[in-house]
Simulated assay, not measured.
Amino acid sequence: MKNQKLDSRKLKKQSIFKASFEESLNLLDDGISGKFAQENYQDALKKEKYRGALKSYVWLVFLTILFIIGPNWLIVALNDYLFYHANPRDLTVRLPEINFLPYWVFWMGLAIWILLIILGKRFNQQFILIYRGQFHVMVSFIIWLLVELNLLLLNLLYGLVEYLGLFAMEGLILFTIIYLIHAKSISLLKLLYGGTGIESPTDRVFNSVFRFIVKYGGIVVALWIIFRRIYSDSIRNADNLVGRLWILFLFLIFDILVSAFEIYFMFPYMLQGYYKLKYPEEYREWEGKTVEEWYGKKYLKKYKELLKNE
């Protein structure tokens, strides 16, 4: 018990970003993301041979417009049509007075996404290009898309839950995401440093509160919506209420599933990329790559001293 307490105190001072090279290799043993990370990495390596060709750049621009910029623009365009061009009599939902998804949200999201791409150009070692590309597609793009979908659904669900319900619903999602981040961070600390019993009394209280909110928060929100609709509208709206509650339920599940994917799969995977940047030579030798294979010809032109490590 005493050793366990000492181990817990030691781990509490650690960070998931300060592990040694040997400790960072423990990320590959993650029961949830380890296999996914390896398969994803190997699949990306096969596609890297097409990088740099003119055809690949043209194809990349086309796919970016079609599958990244396009969906985000369509969501805002649909919302704009419902708010400012559709006949209110034809709508089956009551829109709020405030438009939660104006066009400037799309342009701001696009600007942030492009800025992240520009900042990412600073890291141009061959071994990090895989992580850089997947970050823009599977992390920043998905977060951008998720934000727009949430704002669109806030507009569509306003008539069902009104502002108080909207805040409760988004609060439930936010609490769930924070809980998942906290739980995964503890799991990664244990994995990296091989510790047990990391949770302090404060952590246990924190976890208990968030588990309760995640487990029962949705039920409370649903009961509040049913109560409000039954006592404010006629019973003829029962079928419509059930349909909208089903949409709300699917919306909450979709948000949680996407967030869980980012936290439990993509974050540990990107953390591996971070440690490869931190310990490039150690990982190069561990993966058995030559200096040119690991860093790339373009990078070596600027940093010729790395050739001495061959």
Score class of each variant (00 low, 15 high):
residue 290 T to E: 01
residue 49 K to D: 06
residue 226 I to F: 06
residue 70 G to K: 10
residue 174 L to I: 15
residue 226 I to L: 13
residue 50 Y to P: 05
residue 252 L to D: 08
residue 194 G to Q: 05
residue 150 N to V: 13
residue 98 I to K: 14
residue 171 G to K: 13
residue 227 F to V: 13
residue 60 L to A: 11
residue 253 I to S: 02
residue 74 L to E: 12
residue 217 G to T: 06
residue 207 N to L: 05
residue 7 D to T: 15
residue 5 K to D: 01
residue 53 A to E: 05
residue 198 I to Y: 11
residue 24 S to N: 02
residue 266 M to Q: 13
residue 207 N to G: 00
residue 49 K to S: 11
residue 303 Y to M: 01
residue 221 V to G: 02
residue 88 P to Q: 09
residue 202 T to G: 06
residue 59 W to S: 10
residue 164 L to N: 14
residue 145 L to P: 01
residue 95 L to W: 11
residue 180 L to I: 11
residue 245 L to Q: 11
residue 296 G to M: 04
residue 95 L to K: 13
residue 30 D to K: 04
residue 27 L to Q: 11
residue 71 P to M: 05
residue 306 L to G: 02
residue 84 Y to E: 05
residue 93 V to C: 06
residue 202 T to D: 05
residue 150 N to D: 07
residue 38 Q to M: 03
residue 268 P to Q: 07
residue 287 E to R: 10
residue 17 F to T: 15
residue 40 N to L: 01
residue 14 Q to I: 08
residue 140 S to Q: 08
residue 87 N to G: 03
residue 176 T to G: 07
residue 10 K to A: 02
residue 258 V to A: 12
residue 253 I to F: 12
residue 234 S to L: 03
residue 109 G to E: 06
residue 184 K to Y: 04
residue 35 K to G: 03
residue 264 Y to E: 03
residue 188 L to A: 05
residue 103 Y to D: 04
residue 60 L to H: 13
residue 187 S to C: 00
residue 95 L to H: 11
residue 31 G to H: 10
residue 116 L to M: 14
residue 253 I to R: 02
residue 68 I to C: 10
residue 295 Y to S: 01
residue 288 G to I: 14
residue 39 E to K: 14
residue 288 G to E: 10
residue 299 Y to E: 09
residue 57 Y to G: 01
residue 271 L to V: 08
